[in-house]
Each structure stands twice: as C-alpha cells, then as structure tokens.
Design a protein around this nucleic acid. Sequence first.
DNA 1: CGGCTTATTGACATACGTCAACTATTGTGG
DNA 2: CCACAATAGTTGACGTATGTCAATAAGCCG
Lengths: 230, 230
Amino acid sequence: MPSTIRANDIADLKGTELLSVLADSAFARIVEGCLVQRLPPGAVLFEEGDRADFLYVVLAGRIALVADGPDHREAVIEIFAAGEVLIAPAVILDLPYLVSARVTEEAQVAMLPAASFRRAMAEDSAASLAMAQILARHWRILVTQIKELKLRSTTERIGVYLLGLLSADDGPQTIRLSEDRGTMASRLGMSPESLSRAFAQLRRIGVGGRGRTVVVAEPEKLRKLCRRED
Amino acid sequence: MPSTIRANDIADLKGTELLSVLADSAFARIVEGCLVQRLPPGAVLFEEGDRADFLYVVLAGRIALVADGPDHREAVIEIFAAGEVLIAPAVILDLPYLVSARVTEEAQVAMLPAASFRRAMAEDSAASLAMAQILARHWRILVTQIKELKLRSTTERIGVYLLGLLSADDGPQTIRLSEDRGTMASRLGMSPESLSRAFAQLRRIGVGGRGRTVVVAEPEKLRKLCRRED
DNA sequence: CGGCTTATTGACATACGTCAACTATTGTGG
DNA sequence: CCACAATAGTTGACGTATGTCAATAAGCCG
C-alpha cells in the first residue's frame, strides 16, 4: 500500500540528481502529493499502456523496465537503481507508458504525481536543465544498447557488459552481478541458455565464477575480444 | 565548405521546435557563430569518437546516424529529417559522439557551436524544457526500437515499419520509402538479403511494389500480423 | 546503349532459440 | 540440521531464422 512520505524519504528524494536542483518551494510542492511504497521482488509498478499518472523515483532496490512480448516472453530494457528516476519521458509528454516496470530487488519507490512534476519542470529552469541532462545520458545508454544488438554477438555483448563492471585494473578481478543471470540474459537480448553457453565460451579466456559471482582472470583478454578494430 | 549563414537559413532555424522557443537575444547569439553547409549524399558530418564541437540542425535532406562495426559493417541507428536536431546528447554532456553521421539524401545543415548552445540551454529555461521534451520523444523512439530488436522477427519489424508509414485508412495504399532498401535493412537491424526475403514473405498478405514504392493492398492483414495478442 | 549501383534469388553456413533432461542452489518446514 | 521442494543454471540434441557468399536480374544515369 502506498503511504505518505516520511522525513528520511524526503532526504533521499532531495539527494537525487533531478530533485536536488529544485528550488525549495518547488521541491516542497512536488513532495506534497508524493507517495512512498515498499515493494517485494516481482511487484509490478505499472504496465505498458497505463496512463502515466506518476513519475517514479527509486529510493532503494532495483526496478526493471520490461517490454511484453508474445506468449509470455518479455525483454528487459533497462534497470534502475537508487537515486534514479523512472520513465520521465512518458510523464513529460503525458503519453501512456511504453513499457512495464517490475521490482527485481526489494525496493522502495516514491511516486510523484505527473501533473505537478510537469508544472515544476515548466516553472523551474534548473529542473528542466537537469532533466535534459539525465535524458541525454539515457539517450547514449540506449544508443549503445542498440549498437550492441545490431553489431555484436551474444558472447561479445556479455563481454561488454562485464567490462562495464570491471575496474581499470589489469589483475584478476571478482565482480558481483547485480541481477540474476536470467534477467541479465533478457537485458542483453538473448535466452538464458544462450547466455550460459556464451559464458562457457568465455571460460577459455579466463572468465569463471558462478551464480552472481564472476571472476575475470585476465581483463585484458576480455578487452581484446570486445575491441572493434580487430 | 561551411559558409556563414544567410537570411532564409535563419528563418529555417527559427522554425525548428528547439530554436523557436528561444528568446530573441539568445537566438541571435546562437546564430552568431553558426555555419551552414550543403552536402551531397554520402558526405560524413562527423565520426564516432570525435569531440562534440557542434550541434547540427537539419535544414533540408536526410541524415543518418550510423554505428561502425567490425570489417566495414555498420548499423543505422536513426535517421533525421528537416527541422530536427542532431546528437544533442553529446553536445549537452560535452562527450565524444557515440555514432557517426552521414548524409543519405542531399542535405543542408546548420552547425551551432557546442559551447554557445550549452550556454543558451543554461540561460534560457524554455530551451531546456524544449530540449527535455525532444529528448523524451527520442527516448521513446529508441526504446521502441529496442523492443522490436529483442522481441520481433525480421518480417514483423518490416511490418511495423510499414505500418508507421500507413494512414489509418483500410483500403489499399501506396507508400514511398524515404530510404533505399539497403539503408532500411540496416536501420531495422538486418541484412539487405534478409529484408528482401522478408518482403517476399509479406507478398502473400498483399504487400508488393518495388524500389522505393510499396503497395499495401490490405493494411488490416499487416496490422493483424504485427498485433501482439495474436 | 553500356556501365553502375541496388535488389533479388539460390545454396549454404551458423548463431541462436527451443525443448527437455539434468544438476546446482536456495529456501522452508519438520 | 536434514529432507524436500522450488528455483535457477547448465548441458545436449535439434530446428530454424538469419547471415554470408556468389550469381543473376533489375533500375538508373551519363
């Protein structure tokens, strides 16, 4: 059940990139009609096609944007973590959601009424500038994803994904996946089985581990695999 | 060769969604350092990795954003027409271009210096609001494309693409593709050969025509093919 | 009318998905 | 703490959609 907002939720909201720039009065107005929800994994925030009545802000946990396909297939488009703002585009344009949202990791989210958010955007220039910057970053994230889908094999896509989790260091590294492998497969546009097999491929260049743990023995080999100018 | 701007170019710029909202003084400053270029098909505006020194506005013709793949393969990400603004994200964030841009149809483009555009965004709240709205629309376009790449077959992707060109009418329609079939294939994430074969599939439900002309005898059949809930 | 690019078609290879079986892994209640 | 079920991941066998390579045909332009 949505509940009204508490003091430390307000602090969290104030700490997000988007809302931190708002003037105090504008921030107060936004927070006014705001609801906060704690949700278990699997919970659905909204479904594709719903009217965009709320802007969601992730306060904790993780939320996946998923597109529904034929016969219960689905594709994960993007995953959001604490501090990020969800589906602003639908809210800004006052258009139905293009995707559904589902909790992948026990989450706490704030729901800001769409109309008051749009008003804040129109009245507070810092907000629209911050919004433009956030959307600009997302444009790049999505374009990168499209490039990968169109030009890279399953194995390479996994490689690129892992590289994004690696530090610049060149020694062996252990990383922790923030999603289970099934979700990761869907996000990367492949079946869980293909993911599994692609990981098997990567084993020969020193990528191991199991479950959510992945060990990359030789990051440089992985980088070489994914480098374009081969 | 880039040349300085002429009166009717200024009128065109003033007519675009993004720049029309600017206050006169801000608009004048932006136009100040602006160059205009007329370019033949095949011309490259900039390449992936270049520093984002300019924001491009398409005044006429068409420009494709393309990602370069291994051994001279490439993927078309999006195509822009007159009135649209190109790769604002890189300019806003002052990051290198993620993609290259190539003219697909004899074009005229205005080049606005990145720094003065960023300044205009910061100072003119109407501009950042308009920018946020434009980027919001692009987010939806890109997400739609990702959904299609992840969930639909080549034939369905073509179907959806054609549906986007069709009027709501239910009678036979003749439409004109704005790109050659090779470019269209790349934009849809498939080889030209696959596009050709998928068109052959569609023939049995009344999709015909050749070259840039496509005839859809029974739009309803096409809609049915692409409808999700089978 | 040749040349030129662009589109189609055929034969073939292969990457990836699907279905099904099997094996961890995790969680639950006795 | 162990059995058990439930879930998640792996592996194998197989089918198929899509890419690749090569040859042909069809538009297009000087």
